[in-house]
Amino acid sequence: MPKKRKHKSSPVRFNSRWVWGVAITAILGAVAMAVMVINSSEQKLPPRFGLGGVTYCQVVPEFALEMGYTVSAIMSTNEREKGLVIYDRPTELAQPPTHVYKHPSWDQAGYLGTPVNDKFGNIYVAPAPRVNLYDNPPEQQNTVYKVDTNSGEMAEFIKLPSAAPFSPENPFGILGLAYDCDTNSLYVTSISGSDRAKEVGIIYQIDPDSGEIVSQLKNIDAFGVGVFNRTLGKRLYFGLARESEVWSVALDNDGRIKGKPRFEFSMVGWGADGDDKARRIIFRKSDEMIVRGSLFNFNLLAGSERQQTDYPLRYDPVQDIWLPLN
């Protein structure tokens, strides 16, 4: 009898347990769905944004126009010249540059990486050590500099926080810059503080007007970076500094970094060496990506040793993937 009574009473306890189970399950499901929705959600591209690259508004600095430079002028940060120089594009191949100009403030940050312009003609640039840190001290490596479009003066724009102190294992800070004309956003990839054991790099979205960090993606060592508009929404594409891979992350229509990164394609086996990293990502036309690959192993490299290869890819809007053209 007691067993029977016990048996009779069991559905009550059972039901109670299952109610809790259902509730917990529902909560967990809701959390999972929310996380997945956040991770996979993209804001559909509004009509005011065109498809493809987002650098259409970039213009030549005002000071350069006043000095007689045209839209074909080159802002260069080359191997032998410390800092930034501007010159007219030679009319013939192998001719030396003409009309070369360098503002006195342009070598204060040592050797520099590739510059980007904004819609006003301001230039943003970051230090990029070549074969040593003599001209590129570690404390400067995570700073973005701005060349004012009117005065041509270079000054510190924003000193980005580093997730960890400088390590002798990593002489680099900022690796990539990109500008989005749609949202007036500057994107910066930094691997400052990363070392062999820990990956603490950060991708920043910065407001060029205020110099404030708007959004960021942490714990990722990213290299070249660029924004591309698809009908499904904006995405920030970036090469990994540790792997021969390109990933992307969704941006909302204000340029904020949203959700979790997704793998786009591997570059393993591409080019002569087969282990290039994506040091630059450039979008041309409405469906073409150029990935500029080169050797990168978190150590310094002479310009003469750096072999660069451009890899063209085409966007397939049906599958939402990039396909190598070669």
């Binding site: 040593n132 002798p168 294992e169 002489p171 070392d195 978190f298 150590n299 002479a302 040793e305």
Partner: peptide, 17 residues
């Protein structure tokens, strides 16, 4: 004054060129 200051060392994760 053309030249380089070269550091020597480990092949990855280093300041060596």
């Amino acid at each position: 004054a053309f030249g380089y200051s070269d550091a020597i060392g480990c092949p990855v994760f280093s300041q060596a060129a």
